[in-house]
Design a protein around this nucleic acid. Structure first.
Length: 426
DNA sequence: TTAGAGTTTGCAAATCGACT
DNA sequence: AGTCGATTTGCAAACTCTAA
């Protein structure tokens, strides 16, 4: 499964270089559903498609709208399914702007794969899709819009507005989420005591306060505090419904914490020290064992940011590949981290670019060292929260740990990106 | 303790199917 | 053909269990 594919540094690289990429997965092959045969009809509002589809009604269809949007769907009876789009259903309002209809009969076999393929193909072709599932980042109405308005989302993503967590003190005093339906909160036995978290217990042990563990506890709170304050919109109002925080979950050999936004995790802190996938990097002076944080960004968003300073022409990252970066001048006060990793991770719901770097350096890294990253990270949070509530992670949420993070935010009282908080990391 | 397999869970999205 | 509620499916973190 694992196969290293080292890449030599380009000769033209400047003050900092990308040392290597490593490939863990490289699965590419011919897609059996690539050869699609669609029949297409132009239709007028209110027109039925029954006359076009006489016999075989099972297959994949594509709706075309007057504004150029597309919608891909599957059905065992496309005529009936079409009606639910025209007349509306619990899934969406009636669509009266369908101008064309394409259909590919598939009498038997897997409709899901064919649908996913068509969605992916149209996305890559640049079409705006009205699908929700399999289409992370869609612009369709979402329940989240009622909690954070579309306008506020836009302001948040572009970095314009006021980021004060005005109700943080109230949240800290309450010791539990202020917004969510409390009746459905599953109570963790440790949640009654706001200072008693599994994370706190772990770092209370003397052996976890020295060596490579020294300062890690505080660093995790720095990163989590930054994420709640500057990345998640209206964190106090959206807690539990649209973001959750897991306290010492056992996921993948254990994590200190996982921060989930909407349907996907946005950041997690492994309990294992970071180890580069490429063994050659172990020899580099900057790769002493340390604990790292991994943060999910939108797909294809990270390399363009680093391309400004690095020679990344024609560099593409495939699924499972990692690209290791080193900065040769870590004494520069603007440098939050002398090394970091950019990877790509495929979740079923979407592929994400993953930024990995030592704990405690996230805020400065995305606001000072590479300020272009912050709007991307905010957009990632909004996109995942618009995709759906955090229901599946709800029961793992630790109000106690969240309270502690909110406390650290309130105590820091940052002004403009907490400049005073940076000093201890430089 | 670690690794891996399998299970649990709530929810959203989509399909199905009975009925008119 | 159209309507609407029931049912199915897929998801992914975090869980438990088992074996070494």
């Amino acid at each position: 499964m694992s196969s290293a594919r080292p890449v030599e540094p380009a000769a033209s690289m400047i003050t900092s270089v990308c040392v290597a990429t490593t490939s863990r997965i490289s699965l590419r092959g011919n897609n059996p559903v690539a050869n699609q045969v669609y029949r297409r009809w132009q239709i007028s509002p209110g027109q039925s498609i029954a006359p076009f589809i006489r016999s075989e009604r099972r297959g994949i269809y594509v709706l075309e709208f007057s504004n150029g949007d597309r919608c891909v769907g599957q059905s065992v009876d496309v005529v009936t399914r079409f009606a639910t789009h025209v007349h509306g259903s619990s899934h969406h309002e009636p669509w009266g702007d369908i101008v064309a209809f394409a259909f590919r009969p598939i009498p038997s076999g897997d409709l899901n794969e064919a649908e996913r393929f068509e969605i992916s193909r149209l996305r890559k072709a640049g079409y705006t899709l009205r699908n929700k599932a399999g289409n992370l980042g869609h612009g369709q109405p979402a329940p989240f819009d009622a909690v954070v308005s579309i306008e506020a989302q836009h302001h948040w993503a572009t970095g314009a507005p006021n980021y004060e967590l005005h109700s943080v003190e109230r949240r800290v005093a309450a010791g539990q989420p202020l917004c969510a339906d409390q009746a459905t909160v599953s109570i963790n036995p440790q949640d009654g005591n706001p200072v008693n978290t599994k994370l706190g217990d772990y770092f209370a042990k003397p052996s976890h306060r020295q060596g490579i563990w020294q300062g890690v506890y505080e660093a995790i709170f720095d990163d989590l505090g930054f994420l709640l304050h500057h990345v998640i919109p209206n964190a106090v109002d959206t807690e539990l419904d649209y973001w959750t925080l897991s306290d010492m979950p056992s996921t993948a050999r254990g994590r200190f914490a996982t921060l989930n936004t909407g349907v996907l995790e946005i950041a997690f802190f492994p309990r294992q020290p970071f180890v580069p996938a490429d063994p050659r990097l172990l020899e580099a002076d900057a790769t002493a064992p340390s604990f790292w944080v991994h943060v999910n960004f939108p797909e294809h968003s990270l390399l363009p940011v680093f391309a400004e300073k690095y020679d990344l022409d024609n560099v593409l990252l495939h699924d499972g590949e990692e690209m290791y970066f080193r900065c040769y001048y870590p004494t520069d006060p603007r440098v939050a981290s002398p090394h970091w990793v950019v990877g790509r991770h495929s979740y079923r719901v979407a592929t994400r670019d993953m930024l990995s770097l030592p704990v405690g350096s996230l805020e400065k890294f995305v606001t000072v060292q590479f300020p272009g990253l912050l709007p991307l990270l905010r957009q990632a949070a909004i996109t995942m929260m618009r995709q759906g509530p955090s229901g599946i992670f709800r029961r793992f949420h630790s109000p106690a740990l969240a309270t502690q993070v909110f406390s650290s935010v309130a105590a820091a009282k940052p002004t403009a990106f907490g400049a005073s908080r940076f000093s201890k990391h430089c």
